[in-house]
Amino acid sequence: MMDLDVQAWVKVAAFAGGGIAMGLGAVGAAIGEGYTAAQANLAVSRNPKISGDIFKNMLVGQAVAESASIFALVVAILLLFLDTGNPNMLKAAALFGAGVSMGFGAIGSGVGSGFPGGQACLGLSRQPAVSSKLTTNMLIGSAVCQTPAIFSMVVALMLLFMDFSNAPLHPTWAALVGAGLSTGLAAIGSGYGGGMAAGASAEGVARQPEAVGNITTVMLVGQAVAQTPSIFGLLVSFILMFKTFPESMQLQAAMALLSAGLCTGLGGIGPGVGNGMAAEGAVRWVARNVTHAADLMRTMLVGQAVSQSTAIYAMVVSLVLIFVL
């Protein structure tokens, strides 16, 4: 290595992590809010008389979608200016992991929470009379969408503030980077999927306002199941942060832990999106055929359970990497 002292390495990791947190963290919210604004434009062109209501609804929806990137901004600022106290190489790994967790974790929630905002604006142009139901439904849906970003922020803050100085550097450094990867990557799918369900729900409420109860219930159940992959990610992150690993100078011990984080993280993306698609289909058709809401919910849950299986395989491989090898 170059002639850098530990203090310098901690700064390098913190600044790189801060850049990753805010750079990736800005991607999702920007796309989501752009979608909301695009649908709002469409809505105004259909029904220019209520452009004021649509404008207000757009701003409220965008404000909620913004929160994921505000979490990223907070974590990035903490990484830039936080006084790390007792600098050591494990702190450097933890700070980098915190940036990775928050940066990836904000993508899905940011994109996802744009969908209910956009659909609510479109719905307003069709059914101005149910504006309060639409706005409430939009707010519930996009709030639940934020959960994966909040998981990522929790992991990022734990990595920032926990004291790891008593753990052996090898292989704990890999566990801390892996902890960031696991929750951060897994949050992408769950956030995006939750948003798909919420978007269909806002569209459905505008189409069939009297079925708002059924629509919201199916949306919430669908979103809750779509959250599961990010909960797997959170679980693996907690294990990686709290388990003490015996000191080992071998590269394989470190790579097993890094790989464990990567596996659950990447493995959560697909099932999160897929569960969201299933929920979107069910919610959309509950609004069109409310008498069969129970059949649709059952089919959604069966389909989601099957779609979940690969996330479970990924978690099993991660747990084998952590506990067996």
Partner: peptide, 16 residues
């Protein structure tokens, strides 16, 4: 895990 997760979700959406 990404592909099957997305693909199976699509199937479930169309089944609904």
């Amino acid at each position: 895990a990404i592909g099957p997760g997305v693909g199976e979700g699509m199937v479930a959406a169309k089944a609904c």
